Computed example of a mutant assay.
Amino acid sequence: MASTVLHTLTVPWVRPPHRMDLLLGSELPPGYEVTTAFVIALDSADRMLLTRVDLPGRGWGVPGGHVDPGEGVVAAAARELTEETGLVVPAERLALFGGQRITLLEGRPADYAYPERAYMAFYTVRLDRPGAPTSPPPGTECGAAEWVDRAEVPLRCPRAEWLPLLAALEPIAGTPGG
């Protein structure tokens, strides 16, 4: 399946001149290094699992983080989901559905830690039951994990660049709006 560009923007947390494309698609874009992996977990009530990072400027967001050297992207997504929420989902249950493609426009500065062409992969998993209460394991950067109604997600994550990706996901059949 070819990727569809949902939105193009720039973000303040990427310093060099750049373009970020929000992509909807089930394949990783060729020529881009996957640096991070995230999971949008939905339960049978169409609630979404969010995490809260208790660091300045962070707050509520999607579970995810960096891909470790030598680690597969989907394995990183499953690992980050467990580390940040306590929810254990086998990697083979995760489905790639899009991401954030970042292209530096003037080359990579020497002090910039990421590649000129980076991709932040977003996976989804849909549980066939209501999401059980979760809690980040001790020692993680996350202070809380919580299942929230999808309508509440933009209120908790108002500046999240990934919101158009969430809007592109179909509601679960049998839920309000589904």
Results as ranks from 00 to 15, higher is better:
1 M>C: 09
1 M>G: 13
2 A>F: 04
3 S>C: 02
4 T>W: 02
9 L>R: 04
9 L>M: 11
10 T>N: 10
10 T>S: 10
11 V>R: 09
16 P>H: 01
18 H>F: 07
20 M>V: 14
20 M>H: 12
22 L>G: 01
22 L>W: 01
24 L>Q: 05
24 L>N: 02
25 G>E: 00
26 S>A: 13
29 P>M: 06
30 P>W: 01
32 Y>N: 05
33 E>R: 14
34 V>C: 14
35 T>Y: 08
38 F>P: 01
38 F>Q: 06
39 V>H: 07
40 I>E: 11
41 A>G: 06
44 S>W: 13
45 A>Y: 05
46 D>I: 04
49 L>F: 09
49 L>T: 07
51 T>K: 12
51 T>W: 02
54 D>G: 06
54 D>F: 05
55 L>H: 12
55 L>Y: 11
55 L>V: 12
55 L>A: 15
56 P>C: 14
56 P>N: 12
60 W>H: 02
60 W>D: 00
62 V>K: 04
62 V>E: 05
62 V>G: 04
64 G>F: 09
65 G>S: 12
66 H>L: 13
70 G>A: 10
70 G>S: 13
71 E>P: 06
75 A>F: 09
75 A>T: 10
77 A>I: 04
80 E>M: 10
82 T>L: 14
83 E>A: 15
83 E>W: 06
85 T>S: 08
85 T>I: 06
86 G>A: 04
87 L>F: 05
90 P>R: 12
91 A>L: 11
92 E>H: 15
94 L>S: 11
95 A>Y: 07
98 G>N: 04
100 Q>K: 06
103 T>Y: 03
104 L>F: 10
105 L>E: 12
106 E>G: 03
106 E>V: 09
108 R>A: 11
109 P>Q: 14
114 Y>C: 00
118 A>S: 15
119 Y>H: 15
121 A>T: 08
122 F>D: 06
124 T>K: 13
124 T>Q: 15
125 V>T: 15
130 P>G: 04
131 G>R: 05
132 A>N: 06
133 P>C: 05
134 T>N: 03
136 P>R: 01
139 G>P: 11
140 T>S: 15
140 T>E: 12
141 E>C: 07
143 G>E: 12
144 A>P: 06
147 W>G: 06
149 D>L: 14
149 D>P: 15
151 A>Q: 11
154 P>M: 05
154 P>G: 07
155 L>R: 13
156 R>C: 02
157 C>F: 05
158 P>Y: 00
158 P>E: 11
160 A>Q: 00
161 E>I: 07
162 W>M: 00
163 L>S: 03
163 L>M: 03
165 L>Y: 03
166 L>P: 08
170 E>Y: 07
172 I>D: 09
174 G>M: 03
174 G>E: 07
175 T>G: 00
177 G>W: 08
